[in-house]
């Protein structure tokens, strides 16, 4: 093996090992930091994990927003038309948080069924509906229609 070739081999090996380690770390980090999205119907159906962070989205139910008088704690419910989830959040809500608005909350499900959100996201446009929320509303609506048909039969 000529010295040039040997050098090349060493370089290639170092790069392959380095990139391999980086890819491995990336995949581990990815699997730990994926946030799955669940609709209120899925949460009510017990599909969502307890104690693991995920996202839930829907419309803020009008009249459901309750503020704690002494702190920044706020409670509201999110609905997709079929089911609702109680959300609890401590902190400042985004500018575009309003009743009836489509929002996404990220956090964990407590054992008593409340969803403790550490982040509440409303996007930059008042007419904007997060696509996940739109989907969730549509699915819940279709399921509702199907159920009505069945009961009509």
């Amino acid at each position: 093996m000529t010295p040039t070739r040997r050098n090349r081999l060493i370089l290639v090996l170092v790069i392959v090992v380095g990139v391999g380690v980086a890819v491995g770390l990336a995949l581990v980090a990815l699997s730990k930091n994926l946030n799955l999205f669940y609709s209120p119907t899925q949460v009510a159906g017990g599909e969502a994990p307890v104690g693991h962070s995920f996202r839930v989205g829907g419309l803020v139910e009008p009249g459901s927003v309750q503020r704690d008088p002494d702190s920044l704690r706020v409670r509201f419910s999110l609905t997709d038309g079929a089911h609702r989830v109680e959300i609890e959040h401590t902190g400042i809500l985004p500018d575009l948080f309003r009743e009836g608005q489509g929002i996404v909350a990220q956090g964990k499900l407590a054992t008593d069924g409340r969803f403790v959100a550490d982040q509440v996201l409303a996007k930059h446009d008042e007419n904007y509906m997060p696509p996940e929320v739109e989907d969730a509303l549509k699915t819940a609506h279709e399921m509702g229609v199907a159920r009505q048909r069945e009961s009509a039969r």
Partner: peptide
């Protein structure tokens, strides 16, 4: 539907 957070 998933999202990948800043920690990743």
């Amino acid at each position: 539907k998933i999202s990948v957070g800043p920690p990743y």
